Amino acid sequence: MAVFSDQSLIARTYYETMRGRFAAYYPPETSGEVEMNPVRMQKAEMARIITQEFEDLDPLKGANPSLGQLFKIEIDLLSLIPEVALREQFWTIENRFRRVVPGSMADAFIDSLEDDRPANAGGEVLLQRARALLGVIHSNYEVNFNRELLIRRLMFIVSALALVLIAISAATATAVVPRIAQQALLLITIVGMAGGMISTIQRLQKATSRDAMVDDGIFELISLRVGWLSIIMSIGIGGISALFVYALISAGLLDTLIPQLAGMPTDQNVLPPVCVLGKNCSHWADQTYQALGLSTRADLFKLMVYAFVAGFAERFVPDAINKLAKSAFPPTTLPIG
């Protein structure tokens, strides 16, 4: 159901983009005032049929068009547009082609034309080129849409497995980790998720602040409509990244990246006496930083800052992992396989 809903929204948008320019694709002289030769009569009949097909797919009348139906109509319309108009509008199709297909493919197509540019091509040659370009554009739309659907499906599977692991880990932690430590770890997770949420909001603001047609409007719509799960997952990844940063800091593996944070002390005598909030604690964070095994209250807030950064900057944790991997396995000693 969700797949059809996603495709329906994109198809309705595509339909509306076709509605405004539909009449320009075939000559309006279909009345008896103009003498109709066989070719013109045939085009007039084709125009009538295609117009009816288009109107039957009108979402405003309750229809639910598919992208494939609209793609067929768009290509069929090329046979009706006058040669002069097609020659003038060919650049719009070529521009869409450049924005949709990879740059190397577009360059290869332009290079294949050599000196036989559209302005010099015959009407039939120009028509075939326009059809070929639209065919590639439509194929890219379909492939990208289906790719996004497959990615989302895989994300659902990964998310389900992750939730199971999180549930098992939470149950284990509840049994063996003190309550104050559980609350402290939850605090770090929330801070990391907040960083991921702020980063996601900023990306969405950038997406809405620029013209959707800078690259390709349909691609933008597909990414935003189908890619909502990746947005949610990025927030969850922020929380996991924050916990991973805490683990690295506690293990003393991030000293080169974060030298100000001592991490878990080796000498437990440097810790202040364990306090009870409201009695011996002078600050709400005293119990928390002790539960996390940190040396000072300031280290807790430093950890919160790095947890937020880990959620906000997606490359923070991967870059740290890559640096650790290179230091543990230098290129000369990296095991094969």
Rank of each mutant, 00 (worst) to 15 (best):
L292S: 02
Q42K: 15
S327I: 13
G227D: 05
A328K: 08
M155H: 10
L127Y: 09
A170P: 00
G195N: 00
K72E: 15
A24K: 06
A171K: 11
Y25L: 09
A108P: 05
K302N: 08
L80I: 07
I50S: 01
L77Y: 02
M1H: 14
C281Q: 06
A63Y: 03
S139T: 13
Y25R: 07
Q52M: 12
A310W: 05
E33F: 12
L154P: 04
C275R: 01
R153H: 12
E29M: 07
S66W: 07
D299Y: 01
M193F: 09
Q7R: 09
V226G: 01
L248F: 04
A207N: 06
R225Q: 10
V164I: 13
G238H: 02
G311N: 01
P272R: 12
G122I: 02
G123E: 02
I137E: 01
A207L: 12
D299R: 00
Y141R: 05
P331G: 01
A23H: 05
G68P: 03
Y246F: 15
A247I: 11
F219H: 12
D267S: 10
A307H: 07
A313M: 12
P82V: 08
R210E: 08
T92D: 10
L221P: 02
D116K: 15
W91R: 14
A307Q: 05
A121T: 06
G32L: 14
R99S: 13
T92G: 08
G68T: 13
E148P: 03
Y25C: 08
A119C: 04
P178K: 04
T51K: 04
K323E: 13
A298V: 08
I201Y: 10
